[in-house]
């Protein structure tokens, strides 16, 4: 099982998210934690002016975590997703370092928190560069329901049209739309299906029987299991799978095979 949308660090607007309960929850579901991989990005990178330092810290944390794993600890495998801010003049160096030195398996973008548009020239350059390096890009649509934002820090969601436009303009780059909502996915299904370089993380998609509906719209080959943990209860993402009564093949595609191929794991 591969969770393509999880986080490290604390989140400034909610308590207790440091208490990762990955271990207990996944053990109950999968039987062995050794089969679980988490693609984690640093939450601090959203809020720090310079996210590369947060990527470096996350890399160091993950390395010590992996050492414990190598020593026999039954814990999930963690893989770094580096956050890049293309409005900083050093983004190319950060991208290169994340790719070559930090071992990032993907890049995550937060255009709304870092206040740029995917249509901006620097963002386009970054998207092209990721495509050339074979690094998938996760565009995170939102971190939290806008209705519950801090009143002095209300951050609008990323515009789905902007993401699809960028994906169409950079077809060699692999896009994962992180935290897409059901309304966005269902209303843009034709556009999304027309883009072979776009996949959907299901962590924030919700309506009754949402995963079955997503499969009907997109097929299991375009969907990726994600939890938005530790901000969301992992159990919620796991029960989303149960609610869909997946076939063995659908389950394998959504929870593992698509991610393994996309992120070259």
């Amino acid at each position: 099982m591969i969770d393509v949308n999880a986080y490290r660090d604390s989140y400034p607007f909610r308590p207790g998210v440091l208490a990762l309960e990955f271990d207990l929850t996944y053990r109950g579901f999968e039987g062995s934690l050794a089969v679980v991989s988490l693609l984690v990005s640093p939450l601090r990178a959203i809020f720090w002016e310079e996210p590369q330092t947060a990527n470096e810290y996350a890399h160091a944390d993950i390395r010590s975590y992996q050492q414990k794993r190598a020593a026999g600890a039954e814990i999930p495998n963690q893989l770094l997703v580096a956050v890049i801010n293309p409005t900083l003049r050093n983004w190319e160096r950060s991208l290169e370092q994340s790719h070559k030195e930090l071992g990032a398996v993907a890049i995550k973008l937060h255009p709304n928190y870092h206040t740029y548009h995917l249509t901006d020239s620097a963002a386009r350059e970054l998207l092209r560069a990721c495509g050339e390096k074979g690094l998938p890009v996760i565009v995170q649509m939102r971190m939290q329901d806008t209705r519950s934002h801090h009143p002095l820090m209300q951050v609008p969601d990323v515009d789905i049209n902007e993401v699809l436009e960028a994906a169409a303009a950079t077809p060699q780059t692999t896009f994962v739309i992180g935290g897409i909502k059901w309304g966005e996915a269902s209303s843009k299904a034709n556009d999304i299906n027309a883009l072979p370089n776009v996949w959907l993380d299901i962590s924030q998609c919700e309506v009754a029987d949402v995963l079955r509906r997503l499969i009907r719209l997109f097929g299991a080959g375009k969907l990726l299991f994600g939890t938005h943990a530790p901000l969301f209860y992992i159990k919620s993402a796991l029960l989303k799978l149960e609610e869909a009564r997946l076939t063995a093949e659908e389950r394998e595609l959504i929870t593992e095979r698509n991610a393994r191929e996309l992120f070259r794991l």
Binding site: E206, V207, A208, D209, V210, Y233, I234, K235, S236, A237, L238, L239, K240, L241, E242, E243
Partner: peptide, 10 residues
């Protein structure tokens, strides 16, 4: 409007 599984997971 919400999913039984997701909400039960809370």
């Amino acid at each position: 409007g919400r999913s039984f599984g997701v909400q039960l997971g809370k």
